[in-house]
Design a binder for these strands. Structure first.
Lengths: 114, 114
DNA sequence: TTCATATTTCAATTATTGTTGAAATATTGT
DNA sequence: ACAATATTTCAACAATAATTGAAATATGAA
């Protein structure tokens, strides 16, 4: 992920309504959710949700696809991961103390350091 | 880290000059760098660097302390880690695919999942 | 005290972002 | 074709953020 993409992504996530949308969509998993459903769940007018969804899509944090009348949005898990990777590696030079903060001791990926 | 703090942190990092400042300060490690040194290194006027440093400090991404004439800024490694934790855990519900993106296979903490 | 250095604060300006409701577009069912 | 549903686009406005250069503040040295 390039710096400009990362800035767009960070900027997209730095807004309450949009952060709520992402949280909701991550929870929806691969089913995603329709724009109207999202608007209702984050308690925003349709036009407002639509605007914020377009910002998130611009920043590649979500994808959209029309399914008959509805437009289904999904969190773009890989791109969100890339952003976190960017923060860890590019931006923070893979700093070991920053990395340590992020490891979840309950994750199956975690191993006590030697 | 609370949502409002996370939004402040994301917002602070979503700006080119500020991202450069953080990158530079992470590179400076525990020595930190003086405001003037930072301004020069990110190629910004003193007042502009000062403004952006205050935004970063507000958001707890950096700390400052006066050392005689100079004001030394340091990256707040722990808080930056908390932000990444927030993205991984709170915001993204500890989604395994997002977490996988972020784990560095060369890290001593990494273990192949069972 | 006076001067030089380091940094911040301020006001003015410009640029970007967010909100609202109404109108426009796209799709489906009758 | 018409009506109903789902969503986006638009224009107007309000709010926030960024840049600039000049002036103010703090520190240390002669």
């Amino acid at each position: 992920m390039k710096e400009t993409e990362a800035i767009d992504a960070l900027s997209a996530l730095s807004q309450e309504t949009r952060l709520r949308i992402v949280r909701y969509l991550v929870g929806c998993g691969d089913d995603g959710a329709a724009a109207g459903d999202i608007a209702e769940n984050v308690d925003a007018a349709a036009s407002r949700a639509s605007f914020h969804l377009s910002v998130l899509e611009q920043a590649s944090m979500v994808t959209s696809e029309r399914q008959s009348r509805k437009i289904i949005y999904k969190a773009d898990i890989e791109k969100i991961g890339s952003l976190i990777s960017f923060l860890l590696n590019d931006c923070c030079a893979n700093h070991p103390d920053i990395r340590a903060c992020c490891l979840d001791r309950n994750s199956e990926y975690y191993q006590q350091p030697p």
